[in-house]
Computed example of a mutant assay.
Amino acid sequence: MSWKRPARDRDDVRQTETVRLPYTDRTEAGRVLAERLVPMGLDGAAVLALPRGGVPVGHEIARRLGSPLDVLVTRKIGYPPQPELGVGAIAEGGAPVFDGELLARLGLREDDLAATVAAERAELDRRVAAYRRGRPLPETSGRPVIVVDDGLATGGTARAAVRALRERRPSRLVLAVPVGAAETVRDLESEVDDLVVPAAPWEFRAVGQWYRDFDQLTDDDVIAWLDRAAEARTTG
């Protein structure tokens, strides 16, 4: 693992000397991650970014490694009375992954969320069609796969993503994010073969606080980044 749990009496942001927060933008964050991935022997890896925010980060990693870039679409499953409160997540090709402790505190069963899951799966399918435009999910069996996002807050969507990919039997499953909440990073260590997180703050309110430029991206932005990556591989 590239991350180790910091002691609480250390600085509230654990980072290497070469990482300065906040990042300028997702492009700079991707370059920082790429430099940590290069020595890891990930030849032939597929880079799968979680849209929307993970795609610019993944673009820099794919460019540096000479790897193809694509998306793995995920959706948060929200608590119906308060949709911003995530009680689970779903990734394409995978089953819903729920936060069991949170469901218990809310007095919910997984079956109670069937309608919400169906709605999120429909939106997931729409985004897959928009982003991939008929292309299948890249083959991942027997090859390294790098899952990329722009940060980890609760980690729900990342957990759903890596569990869905584990079913596809990659030779090595790597989760790479520029910044993540320390507790979340610790909890996700067992889900992947390698976890690359240059900075893991203990005080963590939102991913956006660790970027100067954290504009919200659109579907068109995602498609443009994917087209740029494909064109670079064709002309390179």
Rank of each mutant, 00 (worst) to 15 (best):
K4Q: 14
K4N: 11
R20Y: 01
Y23F: 15
T27P: 00
A29F: 10
L33I: 13
A34L: 13
E35R: 09
A45W: 00
P51S: 05
V55T: 11
P56H: 07
V57E: 05
V57C: 13
H59Y: 12
R64Q: 09
L65Q: 02
S67Y: 02
T74N: 10
K76C: 04
G78P: 03
G86N: 07
V87R: 07
E92N: 08
L102S: 08
L102Y: 10
R105M: 13
R109K: 04
R109M: 04
E110N: 00
T116W: 07
P138V: 10
T140E: 03
T140S: 04
I146K: 03
D150T: 08
G151Q: 06
G151T: 07
A153P: 01
T154H: 07
G156I: 09
V162C: 06
R166A: 15
E167I: 05
S171A: 15
L173S: 02
A176I: 04
E183T: 04
D187N: 11
D193S: 10
V197S: 04
A200T: 11
F204S: 10
V207A: 15
R212C: 14
D213N: 12
F214N: 12
D219K: 04
V222W: 10
V222C: 14
I223C: 14
A224W: 05
R228F: 02
